[in-house]
Design a protein around this nucleic acid. Structure first.
Ligand SMILES: Nc1ncnc2c1ncn2[C@@H]1O[C@H](COP(=O)(O)OP(=O)(O)OP(=O)(O)O)[C@@H](O)[C@H]1O
Length: 749
DNA sequence: AGCTGGGCAATGTGG
DNA sequence: TTGCCCAGCT
């Protein structure tokens, strides 16, 4: 029996509309994901073979959850529905068929660190200066090309005449050749090669078209062009394609997402049925109103009138603190208070922020208060040196063509095989057109190696031993232990006896735990599968909502999730919206930040706390940023400024206005004590008192001043930040600086 | 071959 | 502030 319970009419309609293209365009919390889940169940109920259903989700975790929920609704078949992310789908297809494109089926997946390393060697080989052509920029360009499904050859053609672009084309070409030689694919290749496979091998495409007769894509607003192409290929035959998304939640432009995929869906599929969902089931009315108020400032979006039956609930809280430490303290205290007084479990709360760097201070305060927490993202576990080293060993064992990984581990720990020896073997490998590892197997034939040859041999013997172990069918965790032991990696750390080595060893043990877990949970665990999982599993996939821990993550990671109580920190211009977006000449940059804010606000079910700090250390400098414009966009009647009425923001502006007035009059002899940052209570500064204590300054815009450290300069701007002045000075020696007058101790000249 | 230290730049969101 | 790269030293 299909279950239309727990669905409203519109949702039910979307569920039952199974044939032909369907666009489900709906606001946050309107039950899009729920519809998809029920739709799969409904299809199965209608007698569609679950084998013919494909659902694409944004994260692996969402995929798992969707499968679980379908399983709860239908009596059979949920396990044969193919639910996965784009990348996981592509890997599965390519593992089977990539030999058609002359790759080996046991290809390695390169992450962005690996990519960067390859780019670096390419630049060196092409004698290009990495200062002139930064790796980062190269990676971005190549990535963009691949997202457009543009090959190195086509890119070169496009570039004709444009010198810089031609240089990029050279690197792209070299890069792609190297990946091929290493039998490796980067993340973009996973999609690119699948589309290429389908394009040049229609028989393979047709097989998958037959298989996936019903296709659903969640979070469609964040798909990129190549994903669009892939879906187009797969859906071309049956055209039973249901895409689901919210143009207001498109937040991944920086990695190629194209919002027009969803906005122009009806042009691509003219017969598409469009269904809109407008009832929000997640948030209280006040939170929803705040979200609507913010997003309304974006232009050119498809208007959606999101509404809710839920009660108003608490107002949105906003608190302005003096420093980021006080901000964190304030947030953590509130969590602690609710935990104690209102019996809230810790997994009731999430702390969200724009940048990973912000997590550190929250973490510090949580530790201090003994509150259990989990940070999602940030310094990637698999990116740590020791973890990476071990994974590279595993990669070499699996795929000997992966020269890059060979290079990485050949001398780790030190075996006395240095750059010169490697170069000689590489030259040998190039001459005989073999992989570096194969050249090493013939080390005794490599000219000029001499004594190093024996060392190389002991390394290759190690690899052979590991491969033998695999053939004998040992557990992957046993193999891992053997690698740690026989390479001497573990012993070396053990001998170090430093805290750092200790931490590394902990990480290596953690990696082992992950391997054991993989072996227990995977259906057919093998080395390729393990490496694949390591490459494709995202940080958010590690969220375990039953754990009683406060969750910390970026706004991006929080997409699609929901929490009863959300803290959104760092609500400051230049941080959120980011400085880059503010400086950008693309008006959509700010709009994307605003969408991100909308995503953040709509994660909250019952309570939403926004906070900002007047002063914050960013990249080693102290910055003074105004409260985020997004805070000001929230309708005044749904926000409280720390329980003291809704005028903290207005106050700032008013103070600034007064400051300007008094400066204009040039009678700037305002009295009062200097503003103090020694506000230890962790209470919002403005919450304490509203006396404006003015600082005495005797200079104004245009005046010459001297700073203790920066020397002489000219004041270019003076803005009151409430009690203090924010001064911008153009220094003769060190350029433009912004600072607080109370700190800067500027002397008028 | 490998380590150390100094100078310098970057500094955002992720599969 | 951190992290990266190079030069020079051991
Ligand atoms: N008809 C309904 N009745 C009751 N609750 C519902 C209904 N539809 C959805 N919900 C609830 O609303 C919340 C949001 O649903 P869901 O995550 O599917 O929304 P969404 O549109 O995918 O959200 P977002 O785009 O913000 O990620 C969930 O807690 C879900 O259980």
């Amino acid at each position: 029996m299909s279950d239309m319970n727990g669905l409203n009419d519109k949702q039910g309609e979307a569920v039952q509309c199974t044939e032909g293209p369907v666009l489900l365009l709906a606001g946050a919390g309107s039950g899009k994901t729920r519809v998809l889940t029920h739709r799969i169940a409904y299809l199965i109920d209608q007698g569609i073979n679950p084998y013919h259903i494909l659902a694409i989700t944004f994260t692996n975790k969402a995929a798992g959850e969707m499968r679980d929920r379908v399983d709860q609704i239908v009596s059979y078949g949920a396990e044969s529905v193919w639910v996965s992310t784009f990348h996981a789908l592509c890997v599965r297809i390519l593992r089977r068929y990539i030999d058609r494109l002359e790759y080996e089926n046991n290809f390695t997946i390169y992450d962005s660190d690996d990519q960067k390393a390859v780019i670096k060697t390419c630049l060196k080989k092409l004698n290009m200066d990495p200062k002139q052509y930064p790796e980062r920029m190269m990676m971005a360009e190549i990535s963009k090309a691949k997202e457009r499904f543009v090959s190195p050859q086509e890119y070169d053609r496009e570039a004709s005449g444009q010198f810089r672009k031609m240089q990029v084309a050279k690197v792209y070409n070299e890069y792609q050749q190297r990946l091929k030689q290493n039998n490796a694919l980067d993340f973009d290749d996973l999609l690119y090669k699948t589309v290429e496979l389908f394009q040049f091998h229609p028989d393979v495409l047709e097989q998958y078209q037959e298989r996936f007769q019903y296709i659903m894509v969640d979070e469609y607003q964040d798909t990129n062009h190549i994903q669009f192409l892939l879906i187009k290929q797969l859906a071309a035959k049956y055209r039973n394609l249901c895409v689901v998304g919210d143009d207001d939640q498109s937040i991944y432009k920086f990695r190629g997402a194209n919002i027009y995929n969803i906005l122009n869906f009806e042009e691509e599929y003219p017969e598409a049925k469009v269904i809109k969902l407008e009832q929000n089931y997640r948030s209280t009315a006040n939170i929803l109103k705040a979200a609507n108020g913010v997003i309304a400032n974006n232009e050119g979006r498809k208007e959606k009138a999101l509404w809710t039956k839920a009660e108003e609930g608490d107002k949105v809280h906003f608190s302005l603190y003096d420093t980021e430490y006080q901000e964190a303290e304030g947030v953590v205290k509130e969590i602690s208070r609710q935990h104690k007084n209102e019996n809230r479990a810790y997994n009731y709360f999430a702390i969200l922020y724009r940048t990973n760097a912000q997590s550190r201070i929250f973490e510090e305060k949580l530790l201090m208060h003994n509150i259990p927490y989990k940070i999602i993202g940030g310094q990637n576990f698999y990116g740590r040196r020791e973890v990476k080293d071990m994974i590279c060993y595993l990669k070499v064992i699996e795929n000997g063509m992966d020269d890059m990984s060979v290079r990485r581990v050949v001398n780790v720990p030190k075996r006395g095989i240095g750059a010169t020896s490697i170069d000689k073997m590489q030259a040998y490998a190039d001459t005989y057109e073999m992989s570096l590892l194969d050249a090493m197997f013939e080390a005794s034939n490599v000219p000029g190696l001499n004594r190093a040859a024996a060392k190389v041999e002991s390394f290759t013997n190690l690899i052979l031993d590991f491969r033998d172990m695999l053939k004998e069918g040992v557990f992957l965790s046993e193999l891992y232990d053997a690698v740690l032991e026989k390479t001497g990696y573990w012993d070396e750390l053990l001998a170090e006896k430093t805290d750092e080595a200790e931490a590394r060893m902990e990480n290596l043990t953690e990696l082992k735990n992950k391997i054991v877990k993989y072996e227990q949970e995977a259906e057919h665990p093998d080395l390729a599968g393990l490496l694949e999982e390591i490459a494709l599993v995202a940080e958010v996939d590690n969220v375990e909502e039953s754990e009683e821990k406060v969750l910390l993550m970026t706004l991006h990671s929080a997409k699609g999730l929901e929490f009863p109580c959300v803290f959104l920190g760092g609500m400051e211009d230049r941080l959120f919206p980011s400085g880059m977006a503010l400086n950008s000449d693309d008006p959509d940059a700010i709009e994307e930040e605003r969408r991100l804010c909308y995503v953040g606000i709509t994660r909250a079910r019952e309570q939403l706390y926004l906070s900002a700090a007047r002063q914050r250390m960013m990249h080693g400098r102290t910055d003074y940023n105004p409260v985020s414009r997004f805070v000001k966009e929230i309708p005044k009647d749904v926000i409280t400024m720390n329980g003291n009425g809704s005028f903290a923001v207005r106050r700032q502006e008013q103070a600034a206005h007064e400051a300007r007035e008094s400066l204009n009059r040039k009678s700037a002899s305002v009295t009062g004590k200097p503003y103090s940052f020694g506000n230890t209570g962790g209470k919002p500064a403005f919450g304490k008192e509203f006396k404006v204590e003015r600082l005495q300054i005797d200079y104004g815009v245009g005046d010459r001043v001297r700073h203790v450290k920066f020397g002489e300069g000219t004041v270019t701007e003076l803005v009151s930040g409430g009690k203090d002045y924010e001064v911008t000075v153009e220094f003769d020696k060190v350029g433009v600086k912004r600072m607080f007058a109370s700190f800067a101790k500027l002397k008028k000249l």
